[in-house]
Computed example of a mutant assay.
Amino acid sequence: MKFFEIDLSAFYRAAAGEKPVFESRTSVLSDDSDVPPKNAARISTVIDVGEVSYLCEETPFHPLKLSDSSAIEQLASFLPPEGPISCQSLQKAIQEDLQNDDVLSSSFLRSIVLVTEETSLDRETLGLLSSLGCERVFLVADTNVGKGPLFFSCRGIFRVFRLYPDTHDAFVTSVIPSLAGKDTYQSISASAYGQRTKCVAVPSRLYFKRTDELPLAGLRLSVKDVFHLKGVVTTTGNRAYESLYGEQDASSAAVQAAVDKGAVIVGKATTVEFAGAQEVEGDWADFRYPKMLEG
Rank of each mutant, 00 (worst) to 15 (best):
L79A: 08
D32L: 15
L79Y: 09
S67T: 14
L104A: 05
L216W: 08
G181K: 10
Q248D: 06
Y245S: 11
Q91V: 01
S107M: 05
S24D: 06
L98Q: 11
G50Q: 12
I43T: 11
L206P: 11
A263T: 07
S187P: 00
D169I: 01
G127V: 03
T45V: 08
P37C: 03
V202Q: 11
I265G: 02
D249R: 13
N238G: 06
I85S: 03
E247Q: 13
S107Y: 05
A269Y: 02
T45D: 12
C87M: 14
S204E: 05
D48N: 09
S106A: 12
E57D: 15
V266D: 06
L179P: 01
F152C: 02
E242A: 15
L132E: 07
P20Y: 11
M292A: 09
F4L: 09
R155W: 03
Q186Y: 01
E118V: 02
T116E: 02
S174P: 01
G267D: 08
L229N: 11
N39I: 06
L129P: 03
G148M: 07
Y185V: 07
T173H: 03
Q99K: 14
F22T: 06
V46Q: 10
P60S: 11
F138S: 04
K291F: 07
V200G: 04
V175S: 04
P215L: 13
N238M: 03
V255M: 10
G83N: 15
F227Q: 02
S67Y: 13
D102W: 01
I47C: 01
Q88M: 09
T236N: 12
D169M: 10
S9A: 12
H228E: 15
S107Q: 13
A269C: 12
G83I: 10
V272W: 02
P20K: 10
S53Y: 01
D48K: 12
G146E: 03
V202F: 09
K198W: 05
V223F: 05
R110I: 05
G156K: 15
I265T: 04
P177R: 02
Y289A: 12
E213R: 06
Q256I: 05
G218A: 09
P203W: 11
N100D: 10
S130Y: 14
T116D: 04
D34M: 08
V35T: 12
V280R: 14
G237D: 01
L79Q: 12
F11T: 10
V28Q: 15
C134K: 07
T119K: 14
S67K: 12
E73L: 11
G276D: 14
D32M: 13
W284Q: 12
R196I: 12
G267P: 01
E23P: 00
V140K: 06
E213H: 05
C199A: 14
V202H: 07
S27T: 13
D32S: 13
D286R: 07
D101I: 04
